[in-house]
């Protein structure tokens, strides 16, 4: 089974949007590879003809009437925002220019 290089650990951390220190990356490289070794056990099983299980209770699609119902008021929805202006949450610009 695959092993993770230090660069790959750093790449996965980037994909996960986790800012990790050099010490954390080093520790994770060892720990993740140790865990991946445990995953190798699954290769013992022939699952070619087995369907995957995503959930267990076999509910059909749950539908409701398409009607508007009261939802969280703006004031309450924004109450936890670290930074807001009026009815908006403030974030750094994600596009350059005007």
């Amino acid at each position: 089974m695959a092993t993770l290089s230090r660069d790959e650990v750093a790449h996965v951390a980037h994909l996960a949007r986790l800012g990790l220190s050099e010490a954390e990356l080093s520790r994770l490289e060892g720990q993740l590879n140790h865990i991946l070794e445990q995953y190798a056990k699954l290769a013992e099983l022939d699952t070619e003809a087995i369907a995957p299980t995503a959930q267990t209770i076999e509910l059909e699609n749950i539908l409701r009437d398409d009607v508007a119902t009261p939802s969280l008021p703006v004031e309450e929805a924004l109450a936890n925002a670290p930074e807001r202006r009026g009815d908006f949450i403030v974030v750094p610009a994600i596009m350059s220019g005007e």
């Binding site: 996960a16 800012g19 865990i35 750094p92």
Partner: peptide, 28 residues
């Protein structure tokens, strides 16, 4: 800095070791 740097810093500082480990495993 920019929004990506904010994500990295917020999540890097906010999550503990085990949560980071599992996010890494799951992302991989």
């Amino acid at each position: 800095g920019d929004i990506l740097a904010n994500y990295l810093a917020t999540r890097g500082a906010g999550f503990g070791d085990e949560v980071k480990r599992r996010i890494m495993l799951g992302t991989y």
